[in-house]
Design a protein around this nucleic acid. Structure first.
Lengths: 233, 233
DNA sequence: TTCTGTTCTTGAACACGTTCAAAAACAGGA
DNA sequence: TCCTGTTTTTGAACGTGTTCAAGAACAGAA
């Protein structure tokens, strides 16, 4: 199953056309926003007919997904590099998230288009869909790495679920950030700071017998929910 | 600001037309789903011209919101009644949520249309928008009631934030439920069961000195996020 | 070079949500 | 009853995302 963008099978020239369309689209999205840009605008800016845009991209929103996909690949190295320099779990998690926000920064506004169908796992562009699995898994792996070889010993039974949980946590942060209209998205920064403290703190405390019953229930919950959830499996 | 549905200012006949349109729409939504139903279908089924539908409702999705709004008012009594019979906090929270799910039941599939713009607080149909404030506040009040006069003593400093938090928790449950394709939404049931246990457990434990630092940070977080958030204020 | 199948490109046409100017229906005062 | 302003209803027209049949460009075999 080819993910999102239709034919990678390009000759050099086709590949050139494809990226010209994508570039034109992203420029227009950044300038005027997603809704204010029409497919006709994009085609004109790229110097092709409307049909060409649909030959390379399933839909208007698929253009945004193509950006997201390429971004995720571009992240990869930056994240690996950032992780090498840190041992503290909190710092490691923060590093993963920071790299992304930095990269997403200038495209914040039109990324909202991606979240339109976010909730529907049947929609090809949902972050939970089968079509976006590769992206999602790459993304989770970053958290997995952040967890490994950190200074914090984690409870064994919780460990397998943590990458998914942290990924989910990250998605909510991104969601909040996209619609954060405060100056420089200051509120997201505060949310990140405090919530990360809580996450790490709970992870630390979760080993204690005091929180044992909560941890138990949490694991039961995770089992119950993730079984038969192909997208999160 | 009139919320959602345009003119309630109706003569009896106008009101009749409005409800005929809404009824036709909801029937079609239930039968074929939201996307498969066109505004033309709705108008035809209601025996009016397309324009009439737009005279009474801002948009296609506003029809779903009108259902949601009416549902919320209809809940009210049922919830009050259910709360009178229970003292255990867990049972009380459960009661509030159960009443809603029962009422939403047959309309589960098309309710997804409401969540399309859920993330964008600027969109009039977002559950976070100014336009939906009344509905949201009514909804939060149910949780407030469930908290009051329950058998569990809650930490004072956390109390003001709890209705919002529980409302948010409920929204995620509804989101999960809408897209839960398991038989009879069994997975949502399990998620509800376990997560509610955790919620109540954490509330209980939150008073203990052991979780003091976490509670502190949590409150800081809530303050930081809710300031300047008109929709959640 | 010519032929043939594949890849790429085109733009008219379609579907559907939405708008709006015009008309019909109505209310109530003279 | 007639007149006047308001509410309600109409449906043609518009904008935009998307489809698709037809053709152009191209690659490689003969």
């Amino acid at each position: 199953m080819e993910p999102i963008s239709k034919p990678a099978r390009g000759t050099a020239k086709a590949e050139e056309t494809r990226s010209r369309i994508l570039a034109a689209a992203l420029n227009l999205f950044r300038e005027r926003g997603f809704d204010q840009t029409t497919m006709r605008d994009i085609a004109t800016a790229a110097g092709v007919a409307i049909g060409a845009a649909y030959y390379y991209f399933e839909s208007k929103e698929a253009l945004v997904m193509a950006f997201y996909q390429e971004a995720n690949i571009a992240f990869h190295e930056g994240i690996e590099a950032a992780l090498e320099r840190k041992t503290d779990l909190r710092a490691r998690l923060r590093a993963v998230i920071d790299v992304k926000f930095e990269y997403f920064g200038p495209n914040r506004k039109f990324l909202g288009a991606l979240l339109r169908h976010a909730a529907d796992p049947d929609h090809p562009l949902s972050p939970f869909s089968a079509e976006t699995r590769e992206i999602r898994e790459l993304d989770m792996r970053h958290f997995s790495q952040a967890l490994d070889s950190s200074n914090l010993r984690l409870p064994e039974d919780l460990r397998p679920y943590l990458p998914k949980l942290l990924w989910l946590y990250q998605m909510s942060l991104i969601l909040f950030w996209i619609y954060d209209r405060s100056e420089g998205q200051a509120r997201t920064e505060r949310l990140l700071e405090k919530s990360l403290a809580i996450v790490v703190n709970l992870l630390k405390l979760s080993k204690s017998p005091f929180l044992r019953p909560v941890r138990r229930t949490a694991i039961e919950l995770l089992q119950a929910v993730s079984e038969e959830t192909p997208s999160l499996a």
